[in-house]
Design a protein around this nucleic acid. Sequence first.
DNA 1: GGGCATCGCAACGGAAAGTTGCATTGTCCC
DNA 2: GGGACAATGCAACTTTCCGTTGCGATGCCC
Lengths: 201, 201
Amino acid sequence: MRTRVEPQVRGERLVGKVLEAALEELATTGYAALSIESVADRAGVAKTTIYRRWPEKDDLVLAAMKCVADDFVLSGDTGSIRDDLFALLKRFRDFASTTRGASLMRMMQVEGVASELTELTRRMRKDKETVPQRMVARAIRRRELPRGTDPQLLLDTLFAAVQNMLMFKGETCDDRKIAQLVDLVLVGAVNGGGRRLRRAK
Amino acid sequence: MRTRVEPQVRGERLVGKVLEAALEELATTGYAALSIESVADRAGVAKTTIYRRWPEKDDLVLAAMKCVADDFVLSGDTGSIRDDLFALLKRFRDFASTTRGASLMRMMQVEGVASELTELTRRMRKDKETVPQRMVARAIRRRELPRGTDPQLLLDTLFAAVQNMLMFKGETCDDRKIAQLVDLVLVGAVNGGGRRLRRAK
DNA sequence: GGGCATCGCAACGGAAAGTTGCATTGTCCC
DNA sequence: GGGACAATGCAACTTTCCGTTGCGATGCCC
């Protein structure tokens, strides 16, 4: 009786499997405690293969991060700031709910990582700042928002709130919650922005 | 020539030094990668001493966490929701800016920690929920906030924003920023809540 | 100043990370 | 189809670091 043998994987497909495994480990174990061996086991690959392709741990982590960096694309101009923000946050929630996204989020929280990772983090953050700023700029031009509105504060607050729900409190974050949040920040609690919404039938 | 010899520390003072060192390690290295030896080095103490007092890593971490748990006390009733929130966030900022506070914050973000730590985290979070809820309840009674306002959403959003600035982006968070943030969430961006404030002379 | 508990130090054992050499397997090219 | 070369798997090895043990040194209390 011959056992069914999986054909050996190598090249591009192997790289993909390893990086995916690394991201999963990052999401659960974190950066500092990440071991090459556990990544190898998870990927079903010999650890020597990993050591040969990525001599240092940072090389592997950096490669894994880079392949996630473009997962979260933001765009869109719905013509209304409320809808823009709503769409943006939904995409962010979907992104942060995946293993890949969660890994990236976790990495960006860690301090004391290698300088190159810090640089990557900084660059990514920079990239993600321009789109929201244009979003707010459009809203000001349409007189939806008053002149002098701080785009960074607005967006950071919303992102932080969603991230807080998903990663910190471990709650889910459905569309109603996002809508509630956008209303809170846009019109303010004083004006009924933070009210509990009735569940749609 | 005799070298000046530091007198040996023991007892209560030693415990304090070790726990403080453990908190610093937690703040920088994190839980998973925390090693007893590094804590011992940082505290200037033999590692055997630590192993004898706290046989398991969790024992040490738990003890360290417990001695921080009460650092952040919230209270206060200024008679206005705006001032209440302002004071609350300032205290939170001061707390999260310390090494001890940062350690606790980081710990609460970590998943996959020991069950006892999870339990501690859950209990602490629970404690911190009652005060804000009363704060909002008072505001509703004073007709500052509309009925049905979600206290949890309001507070979580504010805390998450401050935490995001301090721990995630590594920025400072002065009083002006906090005031700006409170205004944003209370009156809303549409009503000028998120505007950049002029620096007081 | 003596007894006792606590602490530091150095050496030890073991587990896990990282390295090396070689056999094996795909892949490319003829 | 087959041969050469590069990539992978595997097992043994070295190294490093964590946790343990025994003993000598040091405070502390009476």
